[in-house]
Design a binder for these strands. Sequence first.
DNA 1: CTGTTAGCGCCTTCAG
DNA 2: CTGAAGGCGCTAACAG
Lengths: 349, 349
Amino acid sequence: MAVTIRDVAKRLNLSITTVSRALDGYDDVAEDTRERVRNAAAQMGYAPSHMARQMRRQRADTIGFAISLPPTARDNTNNRAFADPFVLEFIAGLGDEATQCHLDLIVSTATPGMEEETLFRRWVQGRRLDGVVVNRLRKDDWRVAYLTQNRVPFVASGHLQGATFPFIEVDGKSGFKRMVQYLAGKGHARIGYIGGPDGLRLQDDRLAGYRAGLRAAGLSFNKAFLAQGDMTRNGGYAAALQLLALPQRPSAILCVNDMTAIGAMRAARERGLVVGRDIAIAGFDGIADAEHTEPPLTTLNQPAYDIARALVQMLAQMIEDGRRGQSHVPKQVLLQPELILRQSTEGGN
Amino acid sequence: MAVTIRDVAKRLNLSITTVSRALDGYDDVAEDTRERVRNAAAQMGYAPSHMARQMRRQRADTIGFAISLPPTARDNTNNRAFADPFVLEFIAGLGDEATQCHLDLIVSTATPGMEEETLFRRWVQGRRLDGVVVNRLRKDDWRVAYLTQNRVPFVASGHLQGATFPFIEVDGKSGFKRMVQYLAGKGHARIGYIGGPDGLRLQDDRLAGYRAGLRAAGLSFNKAFLAQGDMTRNGGYAAALQLLALPQRPSAILCVNDMTAIGAMRAARERGLVVGRDIAIAGFDGIADAEHTEPPLTTLNQPAYDIARALVQMLAQMIEDGRRGQSHVPKQVLLQPELILRQSTEGGN
DNA sequence: CTGTTAGCGCCTTCAG
DNA sequence: CTGAAGGCGCTAACAG
């Protein structure tokens, strides 16, 4: 058995209360008592039990991240959500800021055979969590409904119509509109689009941006130039092959995210096309890998790491307000993605 | 306040004991009582508090993963350990298997300003953890000493001389030896090596494999062909530039891992070399990205995901044995990495 | 300045 | 088959 506060108290002939307060830095403890306690604790290797403390304080000091996984994005052997560097960078941001706020981060990994939802419910109901970060919102997202109903504080990366919760959204519509206009300006008239799964909010958003861009450039929308991936490399690859097989293939392809674009580049290469000369390809996210592809990928950058950190701060504030019974004013932020031009969109018109 | 077992008991005029047992499936409860309890619980949205249960049972049902970070691999703004897909895949495996074993996984992210070690100690001392998975062992690893001393069960990815703990090791030495022999067989006489940070066990191992390979192929070891990276893309890039600037540059470069190799490929391209024709480059890990580089990367594959799952199982067993006071026989596994030949090592002799 | 008291929510003897 | 009692390790009122 590990050493408890009682052991320390006994050793010093003090009450456990005094030990507790000495260690927690209360000022109603004699300085030399505090010293003795500190020394004894250090020497005996005592550290307060996190569980007991949480229990007493009725807080978990833990937040959760519920990744949304499109079903096709996972196979039986591996959890592919983790394979997206964008998500990864996001998680790194969450973890870093959580640590700084003295919170733990639990990441939901829905394993094969265990529903994401089951797991999530268990967390919430078991009060393992003080709050949740949600990403990739779906159009009608059960997570939002569930969390709202159970009064669990949460913040979102992305937003929904009429959202009353805090969120940070990167403006995919405006981003892709600008991207299309840029490509049109370079002389592209046949611009294709590879999207993501249907239920996703961001899919609607980015697709709308694509169409708005076409309109703004005076280009007509061609349904045949639309393909659907699943936001993974392989999905992008398959979708691109489809577009490239058209009798009149697009001269430029926009992809819903960078992973899709990387898959699409591969498809183009296999068809004997040189990306950035015979065809233009662009993505969205600004993952580090996009710099290292051959050729480097044009993309819309969103600061995943910083967004994640900001979200955790917002969540921490929300939790704090909730504890004090204060009402929380949700902070809602809309960011513009930064257009990063690289060689993948050099030629191809 | 969330609904507790007392609320349920009160509602049904039962004791909390009975409710507890009914829900936990004990057989000394009348069937219809059980039914009533179940219904009430479901209706009231009761789920046992995880914290309280843990407290009572004196177990955290949580395992930790302590990533080892070479100092140069992190900068002030971002946690780069997460940027390595190999680590990622490993984490995915840990998470999946942990969930399956009804364990939570906490991943140590040492934030800027907070020492990895501090964090780690807090976990262990606060008994947040029932066990730990350790990776990238250092030659004289304080984590191993610390965990052993505190009697915290742990398993390692990789091993140390005379290890008494369970581990799974991928044989880097034999792997790189085979790789060098393969390259020598293709006519390469000037083979360079980009390693990782010095303190790492795997660095010794893989470097030894490189040297053994040279010996076996009758090639002499040339210190100038050795460069040091930090297992990141940027580290590989810088180290490769150095090797390529030599008056007699190597015709082939082995890299301690795939990320390093990807950086090296970039350096080669920038120097006007076509990888797979003017120069051969190979890595180690078998990350998914290695398939998608241009050209695809030759590498030694290690099944990160499966290793991680197996490690969690071993750890769970170890924890279980410990609870029962049984002695645990450490399982120690040595795997051979699989040589995957791709176009990055096609020519260049 | 220090100690006593009273739980946080649950599970597990031990008695009925 | 069910209930009462005790306590996991800690902290926060409230008394001295």
